[in-house]
Amino acid sequence: MQQVLFLCAGLSIVTMAGIVFVLLNESVYSVLGDQAFFQEIPLWKFLTGTRWHWDSGEFGVWPLLTSTLQVALIGGLVSVPLGLCSAIYLSEYATPRTRRVIKPTLELLAGVPTVVYGYFALMFVTPYVLRPLFGLVGLEVGTFNGLAAGIVVGIMITPLVASLSEDAIRSVPQSLREAAYALGSTRFDVSVRVVVPAAFSGIVAACLLAISRAIGETMAVVIAGGQNTPGGGLAINPLREVFTMTSYIVNVSSSDVEAGSMEYKSLYAVGLTLFVITLLMNIVSQWVMRRFREAYQ
């Protein structure tokens, strides 16, 4: 029986190994002897190229990367203040009863399927919020744009930032708060000058994790962000189309590309890039979190 249980647990290792193998097999070195992606497109060209044009064989990752970073950055700008303030409110101000109501509702926000967020961004945020707003200053907002996608992604990860930051804030010892109150601090001083700095690394870890989630987010950007960057170049303007790594992967897999073609293999190269970025962010986040926990034990 113990062996069976061990196999169950070992499956997670197999899964991780499987992901790594699958990504490497098509992009770096093919076990079955086909040409892998980076054997045809040199890695440095992939990593430094600023144009993504598969018709002309240009596979520079920066258009995709800037799109992804743009969405993640906007998502972070939305979710970090919102999530952090919610966390402070929930842990320092809210009565237990309010918390019991608000917390599950916030979690609901995280439970709404991402395809719904994408649809909402496309049908509501862009035409009814962004267009009128930027219309005032005479700027044109595209049907598909990075800003709307970034905003909904930000809202989507706010509960994650909030709940992880709240955990971090809660693990700041009560004695520290009491000491500060005893010195005549106001609640504001205690929250902003004592609790948040003490929980800082935990909060950083929370934000890193949330942003890595934003980077891997797919459907919202597929629907609201667009399917190409302006002219296939870098994505700079958040009011124009973006083409994130995740959108690209969906795009390729839902068009009828043939296995073995360059487009097909590029899917794995982009997947590998995405995987490496999110994995690194996760590892850093966990490392910071562990350091943080050790500090308070």
């Binding site: 891997g216 992967i249 794995y268």
Partner: peptide, 15 residues
């Protein structure tokens, strides 16, 4: 396990 939990769902799709 905690690393797997952070892998984007689309990468599972590729797998």
């Amino acid at each position: 396990l905690s690393n797997l939990a952070g892998v984007p769902s689309i990468v599972y799709g590729i797998l």
